[in-house]
Amino acid sequence: MTQLALVIDLNVCVGCHACVTSCKEWNTSGSAGSLSDDNPYGKDPTGTFFNRVQTYEAGEFPNTETIHFPKSCLHCEDPPCVPVCPTGASYKREEDGIVLVDYDKCIGCRYCSWACPYGAREIDEHQKVMKKCTLCVDRIYDETLPEAERKPACVMSCPTSARLFGDVHDPQSAVSIAIREEGGYALMPEWGTKPSNHYLPRRKTRLHIHEDELVRADNPLKKEQRGHAAPVDDTTLDDSTSW
């Protein structure tokens, strides 16, 4: 079985919001219709987004670390948002595991948004239907696009390549290898939703340099300086072993 998903590398995300804007751009002009906005250039702008980038800080000054944290629907393997939907508008695709909303069936009851612990669903307050990340389902299978571009818009736009896209059920895919080898984890594992999207933790690259690595013991320049060893006063191995 295929399960398409994103893997987001928190170690390289710089919080530039390129994925947010390119997601909005692609999905507001897509075949499923626009994503509503109110006061986009005025006071209190608000609107429907599939993807948000948030910023957190861990620790206390001066020992702090900034975490830029993109969040969109995680396409859970056991999505709690699907069974609660009274109309069947929310569904998980058999063939690739993408969780979608059928905008023609949704009655806008918001029950699914209550049932998503991640706050990944946002109702479109003008079209009155529930919206969420589609993993660019209208892009990734589009054969008119060059093969290299058949990826979600956010993945295409990320300047640091913090977003990987692929099949997390295929053990040899780049995403599976990244999850396996770079310590990929799921959000809020306590609810058993089994999110398909994974996050790669921030990693520190530390160099451990010892004194003797700075001074080469076998430096030929130092050969001449080496005199005879001073006579040893301490106990030596010779003294301690006796026949």
Binding site: H17, V20, N39, K43, D44, P45, T46, G47, T48, F49, R52, V53, Q54, T55, Y56, E57, A58, G59, E60, E65, T66, I67, F69, S113, G119, E122, I123, E125, Y185, A186, L187, M188, P189, E190, Y199, P201, R202
Partner: peptide, 25 residues
């Protein structure tokens, strides 16, 4: 906060939710 972000640190603060005018969330 730790399980929501997957960051194991006892002091985590949000600095920005990514937008200023509010949303459905």
């Amino acid at each position: 906060m730790q399980s929501a972000l997957g960051v194991r640190h006892s002091q985590i603060q949000q600095k920005s939710m990514g937008f200023m005018g509010g949303s459905v969330n």
